[in-house]
């Protein structure tokens, strides 16, 4: 931040008149540096306060999840700082014995994993086609697909629920997965096409000369080279689907809903249900947060490439 001040040193070697000039210049410079350090300190304090503000709500949830219902209705979560004995894992124990909750967590996994995988596979295939296969109107098709990026899912709720009703997959895991894949594809295709387009042409030509078919080329050359982009996409889609509530609310099996929907049903009586909602919300956050912290870089680059959803 502050480089060592080199300007005063040579000044000492020059004659007296310039020396005083240099000294005053050095003094103002030092003053500026002190002012800078002060405002720097102020900035740090400001950011510290903001950081704390950002953290407090989550801490509130975490501590609330560790208190008994009676304590929760008697006073706020900050009481644990004066009465640490309030902390208990009872709520979590209850929750993990509750089959609705454990079932809903499994249901979330059953929806999220296939959705993320399918988006990656179908998106890669299409992205490769848009990047390296020749067909008429290719770039227009691609632009059309990219345009679909911003179609709100809300537009599709009614029509697709009728469609799924007709073909018999309304309120099934398959239905939810297909819906998520369809709405994840524009982003996937956009991201991967651009990434695949950067692959050196010679690499593909060489593989083709070696007699590799398009499929073989795709799995042996393109997919491995697309690693980073595919990771970004997979993580992005994973979090997207894991955190979804609206699509699940409408398309998921209401008898075995994912965790977001299961918890949402308890929100109506919020005050009485904090001992379920707080630990439930926390459980639902554990996996996304773990993924986030483990793959920050991929997540961030996914967000940056997208900047759309």
């Amino acid at each position: 931040m502050s480089a060592p001040d080199t300007t005063t040193k040579p000044a000492a070697r020059i004659d007296a008149t310039t020396k005083t000039a240099a000294r005053t210049a050095g003094a103002t410079k030092a003053a500026a540096r002190i002012a800078g350090a002060l405002s720097g300190g102020l900035m740090q304090v400001f950011l510290l306060v903001v950081g704390l503000l950002w953290l407090v709500p989550t801490i509130g949830l975490a501590l609330s999840s560790l208190r008994e219902p009676a304590d929760i209705s008697a006073g706020g979560w900050w009481e644990v700082f004066t009465v640490p004995s309030q902390i208990t894992f009872e709520n979590y124990a209850h929750l993990l014995q509750d089959e609705t909750i454990t079932g809903s967590l499994l249901s979330t996994v059953a929806i999220t994993v296939p959705s993320a995988l399918l988006v990656v596979v179908l998106g890669s295939l299409a992205g490769y086609a848009f990047a390296w296969l020749e067909f008429p109107g290719r770039d227009w098709w691609f632009l059309g697909v990219v345009g679909l990026l911003v179609v709100p899912v809300q537009v599709a709720l009614l029509p697709v629920s009728r469609l799924f009703g007709t073909i018999g997959i309304f309120e099934t895991t398959l239905g939810v997965v297909l819906f998520h894949v369809a709405f994840g594809l524009p982003f996937a295709i956009f991201l991967l096409r651009n990434f695949f387009a950067e692959i050196p042409r010679e690499l593909l030509e060489a593989a083709r000369l070696d007699g590799a078919g398009e499929l073989r080329l795709f799995f042996r050359v393109v997919m491995p080279l697309g690693g980073p982009a595919i990771a970004s996409l997979g993580i992005f889609q994973f979090l997207w689907v894991w955190n979804d509530m609206l699509v699940a609310l409408i398309f998921a099996d209401s008898k075995n809903p994912p965790i977001t929907v299961a918890l949402q049903q308890q929100v109506r009586h919020f005050g009485d249900n904090v001992s379920i909602l707080a630990p439930g919300a926390f459980l639902s956050m554990v996996i996304p947060l773990a993924v986030f912290f483990a793959f920050q870089r991929q997540f961030v680059s996914g967000v940056m490439a997208g900047a759309v959803k």
């Binding site: 955190n243 639902s284 996304p288 947060l289």
Partner: peptide, 11 residues
Amino acid sequence: MAISMLAAGII
């Protein structure tokens, strides 16, 4: 950004 709006809502 990594957590669901449901969880944020409860928070």
